[in-house]
Design a binder for these strands. Sequence first.
DNA 1: GCTCATGTTCCCCT
DNA 2: CAGGGGAACATGAG
Length: 259
Amino acid sequence: MPELPDVEGFRRYFKRHAEGRRIESIRADKDIVRNSTPQKLRKALPGGRFASPDRHGKWLICPADSQSLLLHFGMTGSLVWSRNGSQQHAHDRLSIHFDDGVLRYRDMRKLGGAWLVERGGEDTIIGRLGPDAWAVSKEDFTQLLQNHRRSIKPALMDQEVIAGLGNLTVDETLFHARLNPKRSIASFTAKETGTIYRKMRHVLRASIGEGLVPAKRSWITAQRRRDGVCPRCGHDLDRGVVGGRTTYWCPWCQPADGD
DNA sequence: GCTCATGTTCCCCT
DNA sequence: CAGGGGAACATGAG
């Protein structure tokens, strides 16, 4: 699930259930705490309260009294709130207990994790990220895409260039912008770069509203399969690996020439 | 059994 | 150094 829109949904979910509440206890699997130990989590957080959570790209930042809990959701992470006494799921890797319920971090594939840092020291973990894709200005976005020889898709996927976009949001953005994912950045006109920014905003706005990248009929996300067709023109979609990830595009609406 | 999966990191090439 | 390709991580789902 988790790209920027999903994590923004998790942020709101965390805020609704955890903000301002006293942390009673916490338990975590050893291997899900990446830069610390479950023991240190248990020492640092219980007794305190979470402040309002923040998000940068695909990272959820949960400040407590003196430490911050950073969560990354990998490919299959999510948050689940339940009332006291509910059964733990097999893939629940970390649980934060409050007086009337428990917030659980669930992650089947364990590609995500949790980090514990001093409050204010979050950049030791996420300091290399580019600006958040939902917060970045058009001017900064244009600037980010300078000085690369890369194709557009790998650049937009690179969290150190711009943080939060993933395989689905990038394919969807380029589909709406009618630009081929393999086009080199150097080939774009100012107008085309502006279109990418505008379509990225469009895709993120609609996706944040749903807490995921929706499989709308007019979106290419709904056609991510071998017999998928273009929602706009009906042409068979092309499928290939771009930037190391399975990529779908319409060879008619997103022509490869031009670079 | 096989392939593929909304992410990140590391290693090896060019 | 920059970028591309591929593998690894862990656990399914189809």
